[in-house]
Amino acid sequence: MTAVGKNWIWFVAIMALVLALGAYLGNSRRADLGKSFDYSLDEYRVVDPALMGYAEEEPLVPSITNITSLAIAEDGTIHVGGENAVQTLPDLHTIALEATPTSLALDADRVLFVGLRDHVLEIAKDGTRKAWDSPGEKTYLSSIAADDWYVYVADAGNRRIWRHSKLKDGPPLEIGEKDWANDVRGFYIPSPMFDLAISRTDGSFWAVNPGYHALENYRPDGMPLSTWEASGMTIDGFSGCCNPSHFALLPDGAFVTAEKGLPRVKVHNVDGSLRCVVAAPNQFDDTVKGLDVAVGADGTIFVLDPNRNQVRVFKEIQ
């Protein structure tokens, strides 16, 4: 072989080596992240079957989309708020609105109170409408409850509950301002999830204090009566920064609670202890938020599932 031929062989070999090294360096990456970088909630998604106290039945499917809120009339008619409308189930009667409701309630006279983000729209049984004044700029009305005397409106933006009297006109009573002398610690609302419900027995009302993972009981004048709280990822607590996101009261006074982040629906006894699980996290999409809950007169639990655009129905296992 000539000297020129040998040089060419060396040249080709060196070039091949350089190219191979370049390809190796180009494709090599740092090692995969270790176990400490794993984020998994799998162990919390499965619930002990012995804790399951309810079985799911066929869901109710509204024809409106983007469903956000749920309320039940005394006669059992289910009302669902969604894309610029409220719809009754199962007859699918639709009431058109100017915006999508953020909250919904009915009183015994079937007056419908619709929270439209910053104000309440009152719709009487005959269809006449009355828009209430907005409480303020930051208002976000996340829940409404009404009895024979008052309409309570939870305002997540201002961290207040506004109590409107049905019997006399005037500005609403402001509930929730910090008042250490009377043991009022104020509402801690990290996200716009702030629910309330009126007690079925004594006219007091319960409100979630989600940042504390607490349910708090107040007299109608805003004075605190009692509270219980349960933080934790385990099934007997409330997970995440701000839960329960929604709740309702069972006929016996127990609480039906719904959570976001780790979506689950449970029943807690009046003292806060866990009674049973209604729906486990693996029964919902991971990303679901806004599981509004309502309870029928017979104890049937209705759960609004925005991801599936359904009202899911759960009956107690006998």
């Binding site: 990290p190 940042g211 990822m233």
Partner: peptide, 14 residues
């Protein structure tokens, strides 16, 4: 940010 005590971004789930 909600300035939460139980911050999901800061604290481990367990």
């Amino acid at each position: 940010c909600g300035y939460c005590d139980l911050c999901g971004g800061y604290l481990r789930p367990d």
